[in-house]
Design a protein around this nucleic acid. Structure first.
Lengths: 127, 127
DNA sequence: ATACTTGCAAAAGTTTTGCAGGTTA
DNA sequence: TAACCTGCAAAACTTTTGCAAGTAT
């Protein structure tokens, strides 16, 4: 039987409030505002178990270590800002991409990542 | 002035002969067939410098650590096989994706990764 | 009470760096 | 010869694990 701990709830809340997937470190910093003294191991452990339960999804798309987001969101993709090294969720998808699958391969999922600068890092202010 | 060492040439040759981007470990194994006793540090160092020179491109798209490929290839994307944990290059691209870029953001690049099983891992033989 | 979680510290990976010796131009 | 590279080992990071103590049911 799973227990509902403050730490676990804090992690889920962080993911809820984020505009995009977060790294374990980002989660730690934010979750510590809610649960003082929380350890990084707890973050990793909870992310793993939440992933196993299907509540969270791991994304590894930037050369910066994995990010995590709630699962069950509507189909979407991501934008990685090279200025602030953050991910943002983006809507839309060019549906028809199965023509890219090589003969004999089976596609189960796809992921699209746009790289560039977010509006804040976009010239308005110095990076 | 850069020097042309056997190690550097071996790494480039491995990348030339591969069907998709390779991990540093994969490169080490293959390069050692050409240059006995080669060390992993040499692989990492060369990949970094080749990347800086613009000859090699880093991809980090699988939760499995970065992969590297020659740069200057024609625009293409990748398929990650969850059976053998290898990347394959795939042709084609649904050109029009700029509608996905959020207002105020600037897109510099995009990457598409298909996940699934390659033909070899696809039922024909047990994974 | 029992089962599950936590924080800490140690361990296991992966990537980077320092250095003495070797190689390239 | 001077500049650059290499292999090794140590260092730096990131992620996982063991364990005694704490918490949820």
């Amino acid at each position: 039987m799973k227990h509902h701990t403050r730490q676990r709830q804090a992690i889920l809340k962080c993911l809820d409030q984020a505009k995009g997937p977060l790294s374990p470190q980002e989660i730690l910093v934010r979750a510590r505002e809610k649960v003082e003294g929380m350890g990084i191991a707890t973050v990793y452990r909870n992310l793993k178990s939440l992933e196993k339960e299907g509540m969270v999804r791991e994304l590894a798309l930037s050369g910066e270590g994995a990010r995590y987001e709630k699962s069950g969101l509507t189909h979407h993709h991501h934008f990685f800002c090279r200025g602030c090294n953050k991910f943002y969720c983006v809507e839309g998808c060019p549906r028809e991409i199965s023509f890219m699958v090589p003969r004999g391969f089976v596609m189960e999922e796809h992921e699209i990542v746009l790289y560039g600068k977010c509006s804040e890092c976009c010239g308005n202010r110095p990076v």
